[in-house]
Design a protein around this nucleic acid. Sequence first.
DNA 1: TATTGTTATACTCTATAACTATA
DNA 2: TATAGTTATAGAGTATAACAATA
Lengths: 181, 181
Amino acid sequence: MAQPSSDDAGRPAPDARQMVAYFALMEATALLQHGVEQQLRSTGDLSYVQFQVLVRLAYADGPLTMTQLADGVVYSRSGLTYQAARLAKAGLITRRPSPDDERSVLAQITDDGRDLVGKVLPGHIEVVQRLLFNALSEDDLDRLGGITARLRDHMRSEPPRSAAPRRKPDRSSPDSGADPS
Amino acid sequence: MAQPSSDDAGRPAPDARQMVAYFALMEATALLQHGVEQQLRSTGDLSYVQFQVLVRLAYADGPLTMTQLADGVVYSRSGLTYQAARLAKAGLITRRPSPDDERSVLAQITDDGRDLVGKVLPGHIEVVQRLLFNALSEDDLDRLGGITARLRDHMRSEPPRSAAPRRKPDRSSPDSGADPS
DNA sequence: TATTGTTATACTCTATAACTATA
DNA sequence: TATAGTTATAGAGTATAACAATA
């Protein structure tokens, strides 16, 4: 359990400061997620993932395929199938085979789904306001927004090494999947 | 769904910018958590919660009671009991009744537990380094650390209104806890 | 009575692998 | 063959409520 508070290489021991920031980030976001999920659950009986799916569909131009929907929302296909089945059962979305490609399924939000989003969103924003932004200055907000946007892009492009997820080439991906099977 | 994307006053109309920052934060941290959890799982067969418990015990001065351990780690007592049972079964911690207070249980990390933390931690730090800090400048790091620390403190002191956790015996609010008596 | 912790139970969620059907 | 999606299954995790024991 030796902690490298100081390295032989004379480095200014960045690890300690980094780890403090890391743990603060993890705890803060855990608290935020917890608060947000409680609001979604109590107001609309929705998990955060379900809320994301609904919001995506609500703001999409039209129906989306499951693959489009899965992008960034859930980490396995079956997970999305599960959630979509749940939302469909609750009457919040519909699913039908795509006319263009019979393999695909088009998911579309229903009027009930829109109503629910409309019902849930104000309280959602309010919680975020209270938990997150009430503690931030204007400067903080800009910085946090900039930093997290950069982080998001960075992590999107650098997936966990040990996991090798199913990269989905959207249109023109030069990446040729190393799929050992 | 009307959104106040713009306002005449210089200051307000924060919602659009705020929500962008919020979504960026949520997605970035989801990616970070996912990466970190994969490393912990593949390297040490640990969830993040279990890792937290182990680390807390590893750096604690001595054994901790379940209540001390639960602080900030898990959101229900039974959840901690479940995780502690799991860790004990794996031989990573021990539990024994406290001599001081027979109601309490003292949890203590074992040598195997320390070994596992020592085994997992370097890779953990490496993942965080790669996913998080490689995308951050020194300035970013300081700012993110400062902001998230403030956020954490803020959220700790301002629990979700609708949830009313056990932390505060607030006598005057008969919340929606459905306590018929 | 209040606090500490466990147990029983039920449920949500996620991932893997096998599967179907279409391209 | 490759892709889109579902299903079957299995396990992890969490919360609630009832419970026992101690303070």
